[in-house]
Design a protein around this nucleic acid. Structure first.
Lengths: 334, 334
DNA sequence: TTATCAACCGCAAACGATTCCGCAAACGAT
DNA sequence: ATCGTTTGCGGAATCGTTTGCGGTTGATAA
C-alpha cells in the first residue's frame, strides 16, 4: 500500500495539517471527537509519519551508532544482541561500524556519525587508540559518547567495562587454593589495555603470594597460539595450570593441548575469563570467571539513553563484576 | 567545533545558498574561481551537510537495514563484517535489527524500516516465515529487499544463499568413497527450510546409492545435542561417520564425542558444513564443506546496491558454491 | 448587550538541504 | 547597433513534519 503524507491525510479529512498532526500526538487543544476521526482515517489510510522529516524538525535522528574494532565471534554477538534490544526498546535504531582497530578510521567514523547526526555513540576503542585529546575534542558539542568494553577510564566520558586487574588476582588465588604452584598466564596483544591490566594483575598476584611461580605468555597474534604455547609448555614443563584471559585464546589453548595430547585437567588445569557459552561447548567444560557481554551492552546502552533523555552530562564509570563458575577444567591437587 | 549550516556558510561567503550548494556539488553552472572560494570557506568552517535534510529533498537516506533472526556466533560476525564493508564503501550506513525468529516482528521491522525510509533491506528470513503474500505486498512501492542466507526462492525477490541439497549429496558421496557405509546425519530444527533441504538431500543420496545405510537425528533444540546424540549413538553403534549441517551443531557434536570418549576420527568420523573458522579451532580439525559467510554477505549487499543504483528490478537468484576442505576428522576405511 | 474566556482549530514559519526557473552580464555574430 | 547565446548566479519552491501564535466560535458572566 502506498505511503500517505500528513498533508494528504489532512486533505482527506478536510482539516488542516496542524490539526491532524496535533490530533495524532494527542495534543490537549484538539477535541476528543476530532481526534477520533483523525485516528480512524489514519488507520484507514495506513498513515505512518515520515520519521526523517520529523527528525529534521525535532533535531533528533533516532539513530545510535555502535563502533567496534572488529566483529569477533565470542563477544560481539551477545553484546550486539543486548544493545540492540535496549536501543529498539527506546524506539531508536542501531547503526554499526567497524574501525578495524585503526585509530584514524575510528575518528573518521565518529565524524561521519556526527555528520549523519546520530543522537549518541557507543564506542569500543581500537587498540591503536592513544591520543585522548582528539577524542575529547570530538565529543564536545556533538553526539554524546559512551565507551564500552575496551575503555580508557581517564577520558572524560562514561564507560562500562568488566572489572580490571582484580580478576587476575582472584584467578591466581583460586588456583593457589587448589594447590597449583606453577601457573602460566596466557595473554593477548600487550598493546591492548585490557591485556595490560590482566597481565599486571597476574604478576602482582604471583608476587604478593611469594610461594608461587608465574610464567607469562604474551601472544602478539592469537593465531600463533599453537606454536607459541607448545614452545612455552616445553620450556616450562613444571606448569600445572593455565590462566587464559579470553575465549578466543581459550579455544586455541584447548586445541593445542588436545593436539599435544595433554589431558585437561589431569596434566594441565585451565581457568579462563568468558561470557559463558564457550566453556560449556568445550570438553571438559572450562572453569571460568563469568562476565556477561549482555550485561555490558545493556548497561552501556542504558547509560547512553540516560544521557540522551535527561541531558545530564554526569560521567558514570561502571564496572561489571565477574563471578566464578566452577566447571571441570581445574584439578584439585590437594 | 560547532557545526555550520549551508545558509551560514553562504552568508559568510556573501553568496546565495544555491550557489554554494552547487559549488560544493561541482555543478557546471558555477565558475571555477567561485568553487575554489567556496571549497576554501567550507574547509575553514568545517562545513558538513546535514544528511537528514538532504534526504528530505533527494529521497535517499543513505541507510541500509540488515534484519537477522538472531545473532549467532558462528555465522553472523563474518557476515556482518563483509556486509558492513560493502555498505560503507558505497557511503551508506548499516542498520541492524533482530527479528528473534518471529514472523510478526519481522514484518514490524520491515514496516519500521520503511517508516524511517531506509533505501534498502537485507533480510535473513525467520523460521516462522511462511506467508509469502504479506512480504510481497510489503516490498511493493517500498525499499527493495534482498534475501540472504535464509531464503525462500519462490518469493519475487533477489536472494543469495549457499547451495541447497546438492551439498548433502556431495558429503554422502565423499564419505562413501572413504568406505563409510553407516552414516548418521545430524540436522537442526526441521522447521527451517535450510534443515529441510539438507535433510532431503541426505536421504535422497543415501537411497540413490543403495549400498548405504542412513540414520537421521533432527534436533529441535540444538542445546539438547548432548543427550540426543548420546542416545542416537547408543541406538545405532554401527555408525562410523556423522554428517553435521552447521557449526553450531558441530561444536556440540565434538563436545559430546569427547565426553563419551569416542575417538575422532578413529571410532567416528565427522564431516560438516562451515565457514571455516571452527573446523580449525577444534581438534582434530574438521573436514568440511567450506561456504563463505563473507561471500554471502558481500554478494547480497552488492546485489542490493545494484538495484539501488540502476533501479533495475531484475531478480537475481545467486547460489554460493561450497568447496570441500579435507582436514583430519574423516578416517579412510579402505 | 457586551466583554471575557475557554475550547478548538488554521496559518505560516521553521528545520537544512536541493533544484527548477529566471535574470543579468558578457560575448560573439550579424 | 541589435540580437541570440552562453555563463554565472540568485530567488523561491519544495521535501514532510512540528509548533508558536493568532483567530473564530459559543458560552458565561457582568
Amino acid at each position: 500500500m502506498k505511503r500517505i503524507t500528513l498533508r494528504e491525510l489532512a486533505q482527506a479529512l478536510n482539516m488542516s495539517i496542524s490539526t491532524v498532526s496535533r490530533a495524532l500526538s494527542d495534543h490537549p487543544d484538539i477535541s476528543e471527537s476530532t481526534k477520533e476521526k483523525v485516528r480512524e482515517a489514519s488507520a484507514l489510510y495506513n498513515y505512518k509519519p515520515n520519521l526523517r522529516a520529523r527528525y529534521l524538525r525535532t533535531k533528533s535522528s533516532g539513530l545510535v551508532a555502535l563502533i567496534l574494532p572488529e566483529y569477533n565471534m565470542f563477544f560481539i554477538p551477545t553484546l550486539m544482541q543486548s544493545i540492540s534490544e535496549v536501543v529498539n526498546k527506546h524506539n531508536y535504531s542501531l547503526l554499526v561500524f567497524q574501525s578495524d582497530d585503526s585509530f584514524e578510521k575510528e575518528l573518521d567514523i565518529i565524524d561521519y556519525c556526527n555528520q549523519i547526526s546520530v543522537d549518541g555513540i557507543l564506542l569500543s576503542l581500537s587498540n591503536g587508540f592513544n591520543k585522548d585529546e582528539d577524542l575529547k575534542e570530538l565529543s564536545s558539542d556533538n553526539a554524546p559518547i559512551v565507551l564500552l568494553d575496551k575503555v580508557l577510564p581517564n577520558l572524560k566520558m562514561s564507560c562500562v567495562s568488566v572489572e580490571g586487574d582484580e580478576i587476575s588476582q582472584r584467578a591466581v588465588s583460586y588456583l593457589r587454593k587448589k594447590g597449583h604452584k606453577h601457573i602460566g598466564g596466557v595473554f593477548a596483544d600487550p598493546g591492548i589495555s585490557i591485556s595490560q591490566n590482566r597481565l599486571k594483575g597476574f604478576t602482582e598476584a604471583i608476587e604478593d603470594y611469594g610461594d608461587l611461580q608465574g610464567y607469562v605468555l604474551s601472544l602478539e597474534n592469537v593465531n600463533e597460539t599453537d606454536r607459541e604455547l607448545t614452545r612455552f609448555l616445553k620450556e616450562f614443563p613444571e606448569i600445572t595450570a593455565l590462566y587464559v584471559m579470553s575465549d578466543e585464546i581459550a579455544m586455541r589453548v584447548y586445541h593445542c593441548l588436545n593436539k599435544l595430547n595433554v589431558k585437561i585437567p589431569d596434566e594441565v588445569s585451565v581457568i579462563s575469563i568468558s561470557d559463558g557459552s564457550l566453556p560449556r561447548l568445550l570438553h571438559p567444560n572450562i572453569t571460568h570467571f563469568y562476565h556477561s557481554a549482555a550485561e555490558i551492552g545493556k548497561r552501556a546502552a542504558e547509560t547512553l539513553f540516560h544521557v540522551l533523555k535527561s541531558k545530564s552530562a554526569e560521567i558514570e564509570n561502571i564496572s561489571i563484576e565477574c563471578q566464578l563458575v566452577e566447571l571441570d577444567s581445574v584439578k584439585d591437587l590437594k
